[in-house]
Design a protein around this nucleic acid. Structure first.
Length: 101
DNA sequence: CAGGGGGCTAAGG
DNA sequence: GCCTTAGCCCCCT
């Protein structure tokens, strides 16, 4: 892995970790906040390949549609939704309201 | 080097 | 509301 990519990953992780409890953000927002506009998909890749000891709140990162990026019947979807609800995130018919944009 | 795919996004139909 | 196009980026075959 290149050093720059590692740095980008770190920056992304930083932003994700900076998301407060009860709040959700989109991949694009994370990427942009990390100084990597257009890296939305890379954010997804990073979160997907997270080491199991990351302790990173990946569940607070959703897509711009205010929904989870997993199939509704997927275990990951259910797990993420459960975690969010447990943290106080309000779901509107399987949709989360992002703090306006 | 080419091809396909993925926790994306925005714009159209 | 869903699917398609086009654009962005990175990863694995």
């Amino acid at each position: 892995m290149n050093a720059s990519q590692q740095a980008n990953k770190e920056a992304i992780i930083q932003q994700v970790a900076a998301v407060p409890v009860g709040e959700v953000t989109s991949y694009g927002a994370i990427a942009k906040a990390a100084g990597l506009p257009g890296y939305a998909r890379f954010v997804g890749h990073v979160l997907r390949n997270l080491p199991k000891d990351s302790k990173l709140p990946w569940h607070r990162v959703i897509n711009a549609q205010g929904k989870l990026s997993f199939p509704p019947e997927s275990d990951a979807y259910i797990e993420q939704k459960k975690r969010l609800v447990n943290e106080g995130v309000v779901f509107k018919n399987d949709k989360i309201k992002l703090s306006h944009r």
